[in-house]
Amino acid sequence: MSILSFENRGKWGKNSWRGNCSGHVYKTLFEQYQPRIFVDPMVGGGTSVEVADEMGIEAYGLDLHSGFNILRDSILQRVGKEADMVFSHHPYHDMIVYSGQVWGEPHADDLLRCTSDEDFMEKIQVALLNQRAATKAGGMYGLLIGDLRRNGQYKSYQADCIARMPKSELAAVVIKAQHNCVSDSRQYAKMKHMRILHEYIILWNKPQEVMVSILSDLAGMAKQHSTALRATWKAVVRHALITLGGKAKLEDIYSAVANAAPGQLAGNNNWQAKIRQTLQLIAQPVERGIWAI
């Protein structure tokens, strides 16, 4: 089914965790795709892994509140194996702030503390690349995300997510109805547009054989829009650093990016300068010739 609606969130996870997704959504996904190994890198209140455990699926739940940072840490390295499905329920920019309010102290890498919508989407792209790297060939990776209207402007986060990932890998877009929202009890006077009462499940299928490098694919999609292209470079260089353990020599970063896109960089005499320029924006020099995120 391409439309899901569950008014009852079920017995799984913490009811008190704001923004928690119904466990029936995960149950439906697991029944459809039959993963043997599942990872949720933004596990929140634990709903997804509880459903997976009940269904006999080997499951791993990671989160910023338990010490895993999807913008700096490799999912694959933390779990130690590739998964059949890596699926996350991302926050929606600053709609609900978790660090410092729901748990612990304020954290700079809380996706709900991004400085702008563009900053938010750049980090979502980094997170999705991290998920993709932890997915087996032929496996599924994806997210649950909604859109947002602020000051009369509609922010289509799901459309941005689709635009920033390989179009050849897009497998499904499912509409999920929203129920039991805090906004349900509010009165909205003189609304010009209808309320947003749905979210999107977006799924990508990692190919059995990667015929085109991820950087080449992303750059090819982004070249029509300079802002998106800059965002792609940030995401790919950050992803290279994540796969290198979050800290690496400059020459190793060059190699990681070059191995990801030999065709894209061939004949381009400025690609190393572009990487250095990007590192200035997303990382810190910790020693001479060594960068860290």
Results as ranks from 00 to 15, higher is better:
206 K>G: 04
289 G>C: 02
237 V>I: 09
141 Y>D: 07
10 G>C: 00
20 N>C: 08
87 F>L: 10
92 Y>I: 15
222 A>P: 06
252 D>V: 00
55 M>C: 01
214 I>C: 00
112 L>R: 14
38 F>R: 02
103 W>S: 09
214 I>G: 03
274 K>W: 14
147 D>A: 02
163 A>S: 10
207 P>G: 05
120 F>D: 11
195 R>N: 13
6 F>A: 00
95 M>K: 10
237 V>A: 05
64 L>W: 10
262 P>K: 07
226 S>D: 03
293 I>C: 14
246 G>N: 07
16 S>G: 04
201 I>S: 09
265 L>Q: 03
49 V>Q: 00
267 G>Y: 04
190 K>W: 10
207 P>H: 07
18 R>S: 12
201 I>Q: 11
16 S>Q: 10
45 G>W: 04
112 L>K: 04
97 V>Y: 09
153 Q>R: 10
8 N>W: 05
144 L>C: 04
213 S>Q: 09
2 S>H: 15
169 E>K: 02
183 S>T: 02
81 K>L: 12
154 Y>V: 00
85 M>H: 03
116 S>G: 12
154 Y>M: 03
216 S>R: 00
23 G>F: 03
256 A>C: 14
172 A>H: 04
210 V>K: 11
159 A>Q: 11
68 F>W: 02
221 M>V: 03
3 I>N: 05
138 G>M: 06
75 I>C: 08
198 H>N: 10
165 M>V: 07
193 H>L: 01
45 G>P: 14
285 P>F: 10
95 M>P: 01
151 N>T: 04
20 N>Y: 01
290 I>G: 09
85 M>T: 06
13 G>F: 05
61 G>D: 02
40 D>R: 05
113 R>N: 04
173 V>M: 08
169 E>T: 09
289 G>I: 02
210 V>C: 08
56 G>W: 02
70 I>N: 08
63 D>M: 12
269 N>S: 15
146 G>R: 06
274 K>L: 09
115 T>F: 08
99 S>H: 08
92 Y>Q: 10
21 C>W: 00
90 H>N: 15
212 V>K: 11
143 L>Y: 06
254 Y>D: 12
246 G>R: 06
189 A>V: 08
187 Q>S: 13
60 Y>E: 05
122 E>R: 15
45 G>L: 06
37 I>C: 03
121 M>S: 01
277 Q>L: 11
198 H>V: 05
188 Y>C: 05
81 K>I: 07
219 A>S: 14
18 R>W: 14
48 S>G: 04
92 Y>P: 09
168 S>M: 13
47 T>Y: 01
96 I>S: 14
96 I>A: 15
17 W>S: 04
171 A>P: 03
108 A>S: 06
168 S>V: 15
215 L>N: 04
279 L>M: 14
40 D>K: 01
160 D>T: 04
173 V>A: 05
239 H>P: 11
215 L>M: 05
184 D>Q: 08
140 M>L: 00
234 K>C: 07
105 E>Q: 14
190 K>I: 08
219 A>N: 11
4 L>P: 11
127 A>D: 13
190 K>E: 10
64 L>V: 07
111 L>R: 06
234 K>N: 11
135 T>N: 09
199 E>R: 14
80 G>H: 11
102 V>T: 15
64 L>R: 13
108 A>W: 03
45 G>I: 12
241 L>A: 08
